[in-house]
Design a protein around this nucleic acid. Structure first.
Lengths: 220, 220
DNA sequence: GTCTATACGCGGATAGAC
DNA sequence: GTCTATCCGCGTATAGAC
């Protein structure tokens, strides 16, 4: 076969197949040949649609970022509620595709959906009265927490091999081999606990900042 | 050359060279051939000391974990201070080797230093009066935050290309191209702000937990 | 503009000689 | 314990068919 009447491939189809492959078998399984086979096409055909493998990976990552709901960032929305709803939506999108998180955690790069997200968070905080410097820090720290929580399941990181946790070496880890049983609940509980603690701690700071600003007549 | 009188290689020497290579040029630069060249040795010689490349990588990662100070977890130490000091030491160790963080964030695996760390944190929290379930969650959420913050510089994630931040697309990101200028300060500020917020929020919860436990006569 | 065939160099890993 | 030789899969460049 040479040039078919209707194209076999499209960016959409390639991205979808690539994401499915990465979700199912990890980042390493995404090879151009493997992906091409999955699409019933021969290796280098992909290069008609993407310049390099990295460009393809970028598109895959941004398609995941596109699943994050940003509708809570409407003008006038109170920042703690908006941040809470966004963090949950963000985590849900990443947790559905944990294997792409190491790529996405490197920063927004030039990916439009990632930049849109950063813009929305920063905008909400500034409009709520946070000084710009603080808003930058809070955007960063929320990203730290959410990507860290999505990067890998905490509970799954401990091998289930009970013999590993010798009381002489690890006096407090005796039950660690049973963590995997409640994996999802532990990860979600840790995320929710951390999120609420973070928001409480930031609210404390906001009161102080607002008070300081009122007294001194503006911060920067 | 065949078998030398005194071995040219040792696990120590290999690990040190591998870590230097990963730090300087990233995870992708760590190939068995490249590493062998760096050690003035021929490719497959490394397989006399490590079964697979993954085993080598595991050893490299655990050597980084070994740099984390755990001395603050002495019996009787107040948990907020211990957690604060540990988080800083943990972040410092990871920030010195950001390229290995994606590997290490996957969980402790069977790496002894990683397990020792998890054991120390959990033990301190339980001895301080946190219920075991809460202690597990707090260990997880602290790991989320610290690994997330070490995974990549927030500020460096935004391209310096000013033309990228078109006000029509990203109304609040106008100054984002200048983030890289103060990269280190932004990352550290975000980490410290998040850490203090987290500890404040957890302290609030601890008071409630302790009160509840006092009233109900024990939690678990 | 979209596909196939072919080819190059580099990656991890193994086998066997010394 | 280290070498050389070798295998196979990878990303991707190039050439040519339609």
């Amino acid at each position: 076969m040479a040039r078919p009447r209707t194209p076999l491939l499209s960016r959409e189809r390639i991205i979808t197949a690539a994401l499915r492959l990465v979700d199912a078998e990890g980042l390493d399984a995404l090879s151009t040949r493997r992906l091409a086979t999955e699409l019933s096409v021969s290796g280098p055909s992909l290069y008609n649609h993407f310049g390099t493998k990295d460009e393809l990976l970028d598109a895959v990552v941004d398609s995941v970022m596109g699943e994050v709901d940003l509708s809570m960032f409407t003008p006038g929305a109170p920042w703690p509620e908006a941040l809470r709803a966004w963090a949950r939506s963000y985590r849900a999108a990443l947790a559905a595709h944990p294997n792409v998180v190491p790529v996405l955690a490197q920063g927004p790069g030039r990916r439009p959906n990632a930049l849109r997200l950063a813009d929305a968070v920063f905008g909400c905080l500034v409009e709520s009265g946070w000084p710009r410097g603080q808003a930058t820090r809070i955007g960063a720290l929320m990203r730290y927490f959410v990507t860290g929580s999505a990067l890998a399941s905490f509970a799954a990181g401990f091998p289930e091999d009970a013999g590993l946790y010798d009381a002489a070496d690890y006096p407090h880890l005796g039950e660690a081999h049973r963590l995997a049983e409640h994996r999802g609940a532990i990860d979600e509980g840790a995320f929710e606990t951390g999120l609420e603690a973070l928001l409480d701690g930031l609210a404390l700071r906001f009161e102080r900042t607002a008070e300081g600003a009122r007294r001194a007549g503006g911060d920067r």
